Amino acid sequence: MDLEAVRTFVAVADAERFQDAATDLSISQQAVSKRIAALEKTLGARLFTRTARGARLTLDGQAFLPHARTLLHTAERALASVSPGRRALRVDVVGRQLAPAGLLRDFHRAHPDFELDVVRLPHAGAAMEALLEGSVDAAFRCVPAPGHALPEGLEATPIFDEPLELLVGPAHRLAKARTLSPEDLAGHRIWMPSLVSGTEWSAYYASLAAAFELTIDSVGPNFGLEPLLDAVADSPEVATLVGEDTRFLWPDTHGLRRVPLRDPTPVYPHSLLQRTADPHPTLAALRGHLAGAVVDRPGTWVPDWARASEQPPARGDWMSA
């Protein structure tokens, strides 16, 4: 169906005169008549009756009018969904249950009039590619990574360092500890099946394991969060690592315990990635909101390559993963 003909039909229905509709659309009255005639042929129905006072909708025209408005509204939304500056601010997060997604929920509560489109890309490399092509406006990621430069045209702003905690079941040997140091985890099995080779979070946890001689096990199928929590709850030996600001829900019967890590506190550094020149009008508001999330935490540990304030951002092997 010709949307211009539908738009012309709505204009005539609103103006009740072909000439007035032509003026509103900046076309000739003859063009209006041709579009209406073509639409009537497509529909197999007469839409207007011409009168001395102008144009009056027929019963078929009255029936078609609300659907015509819906068609135009849908077309407008479809265009807005892919037009930078018109579509919703599209932001990539690692996971919808993780802390960056919580920051976006806080932003939306503070600015309910701003539209957000939250997406999840497989790794930082994919996020950078999407940023460069303009299909994504911003991304929450851990950058840099060893030995590479951030692609030209992108910039990274440190947002917050999220402390890690040990998550254990009630029968685990460390379940009664009030706090633990990373060295205390040596010799214990830390199961993280979500670690995927070639991702920035896999690089982070590999550095953590090397720094403190930890056993971080990613072997086994990743069936998602709930099976992982079930396994930790039932085991006296298996534990996992979670972010302090990442909220999980589990049954009371699991008895899971989050144990803070201290001396030093390993933190996962979240940064906001964006194009150096991004036209989306909502991005400035998001950056202003996130400025309040930056917290200076003494006594923390991050990999040397992830110290965004000390080294230039890096690209990482995940760009080609």
Rank of each mutant, 00 (worst) to 15 (best):
V295T: 09
E152Q: 12
R178A: 12
F48M: 03
L132Q: 13
S81M: 03
A233S: 13
T70G: 01
S218T: 07
L131T: 08
H111K: 07
P84K: 07
P163T: 14
R307A: 12
A177S: 15
P260E: 11
T58G: 06
P266E: 02
T8I: 03
E4S: 03
R307F: 05
A13P: 06
V232A: 02
A231H: 08
L273D: 06
A233L: 11
F212R: 08
G95K: 09
A63F: 04
H67C: 09
V295A: 05
E76C: 14
S81A: 09
T23W: 07
A306P: 11
A145T: 15
R247I: 15
T282R: 13
S26Q: 03
A15S: 08
F9I: 10
P144W: 01
L43C: 00
E115H: 11
V32P: 00
A321E: 04
R50V: 04
A314W: 08
H148K: 05
T23I: 11
L57P: 10
Q311M: 08
A21E: 05
L290S: 04
A52S: 09
A45P: 05
P227D: 08
A209Q: 03
H73C: 03
P236G: 02
W301C: 07
P221N: 01
L214W: 13
R105A: 15
E4T: 11
P144S: 14
S320K: 10
G299W: 09
R56C: 11
F160G: 15
A284L: 06
L208P: 10
A124V: 14
R35N: 00
L261H: 13
A277M: 01
D245E: 09
T240H: 08
V94D: 04
D252A: 15
Q97I: 07
L166P: 04
S207G: 09
P266W: 13
P236T: 07
L103C: 06
Q62F: 15
A231Q: 14
M1F: 12
H123Y: 10
R69L: 05
P221V: 02
H254D: 00
S81I: 10
D106R: 12
L241C: 07
H280W: 03
A284M: 00
P193M: 01
P312G: 06
W191Q: 03
R287L: 12
R7D: 08
S26C: 05
D230G: 06
G134N: 09
R257Q: 12
A175S: 08
A209D: 13
V267P: 00
V91K: 12
G44S: 11
R96S: 14
Q19W: 10
H108G: 05
G147M: 00
P227Q: 03
K176A: 07
Q29R: 13
L208C: 11
R46Y: 04
D278K: 00
R53A: 15
L290W: 02
E133I: 07
G255S: 08
D2V: 06
E133V: 10
A156T: 10
T199E: 07
R17P: 02
D230L: 04
L57N: 03
L98Y: 15
A211D: 12
K34Q: 12
D60K: 09
G198V: 01
G61N: 15
T215F: 04
G125F: 07
L261K: 09
A293F: 13
I216T: 12
L166A: 11
G61Q: 01
G147C: 03
L3A: 03
A206P: 04
A110E: 08
Y205H: 12
